[in-house]
């Protein structure tokens, strides 16, 4: 993460400044904003000049106004989607790490499971949803889909991390007669943390996608329904601006999850891991 703002004690006086004296982060902030204004302006102009009806393509202003009107009614749906995403992610974290520990401990289990892990991972989950729906109620199906999708990146990355422990450090622990529990807790888990967190960042994005896609396939979660269900509902009722508002909420949720998992990674690794350290040059 590069912190915007002036760098104190900058010897070269240019590390964070582009030629011409402007801070280097300025174009990274300004240019996307300029592009945003251009795109929204063109959209507004297109709708006005061609007199496109609002039920086909609402203008940005219409969507903006709809935001205030619709957000209160969409918030419970957002909450439902967030709950499914968050709970699935949490269960995936705990069970993925636990299974990774067991798999690394027992090589034969690794061999037995490996092909099925790959099959489950590459199978599009949306195709499993209708089958799951036969066995479970809708809410359980949604949780299962989100869990299936998030589980594997965490399992695969953590397994890789647990297998990549420095052999000399393993020898050192053996030399000092560390118990298996000590070796796991003091060596293997911290050592695989960067891998686990990479899995978490991947899984965080996938969890949201899975909970939305699964709801498209399986229907409303519980009485209220999630954002995906509300998008379908708005489509049936030709409430196109509301579809855009729901989409916006989903996008913001995705960004928030990404930000949160990146923040967790940064906080956990900032003191020691190469990936989280700012280089001075």
């Amino acid at each position: 993460m590069t912190a915007p703002g002036p760098v104190i004690d900058d010897e070269e006086g240019g590390a964070s400044r582009a030629a011409g004296g402007l801070p280097a982060w300025l174009p990274k902030v300004v240019l996307p904003l300029v592009l945003l204004v251009v795109l929204i302006g063109s959209w507004e102009a297109y709708v006005r000049l061609n007199a496109v009806p609002g039920y086909l393509l609402p203008s940005p202003i219409t969507v903006y106004l709809a935001t205030f009107r619709d957000i209160p009614s969409l918030l419970p749906a957002l909450q439902t989607t967030l709950t499914i995403t968050g709970v699935a992610l949490l269960i995936a974290m705990v069970s993925g790490v636990a299974l990774a520990i067991v798999v690394v401990q027992f090589r034969w289990l690794d061999y037995a499971l490996a092909p099925y892990m790959v099959i489950l991972q590459v199978t599009p989950i949306i195709a499993i949803a209708p089958i799951l729906l036969i066995f479970f109620e809708t809410t359980t199906t949604l949780y299962s889909c989100a869990l299936l999708v998030t589980f594997f990146p965490i399992l695969a990355n953590t397994t890789q991390g647990l297998k990549s422990v420095d052999h000399n450090l393993l020898d050192l622990f053996k030399l000092y007669r560390a118990s298996p529990g000590q070796t796991l807790w003091l060596l293997k888990l911290p050592s695989s943390l960067p891998y686990l967190l990479t899995g978490l960042r991947i899984a965080g994005g996938l969890a949201l996608i899975a909970s939305v896609v699964a709801e498209f396939a399986a229907g409303a979660a519980g009485a209220k329904g999630g954002l995906a269900f509300r998008i379908l509902e708005a489509q049936y009722r030709m409430l196109v601006p509301r579809m855009f508002v729901a989409l916006l909420l989903l996008a913001l949720t995705g960004v928030a999850i990404y930000g949160l998992t990146s923040l967790i990674t940064h906080l956990a690794l900032r003191r020691w891991h190469e990936s989280a350290i700012r280089r001075e040059s």
Binding site: D166, N168, L169, D171, L172, F173, Y176, R177, A178, Q182, L186, L187, P190, S191, L193, R271, W272, H273
Partner: peptide, 23 residues
């Protein structure tokens, strides 16, 4: 060892503590 073989996530203090901690 030939390499320092330190735990990168632990401080110098934590690394030197390790043999005693394991006891």
């Amino acid at each position: 060892f030939q390499e320092p073989t330190l735990m990168p996530w632990a401080t110098v203090f934590g690394n030197v503590w390790l043999p005693l901690r394991l006891k």
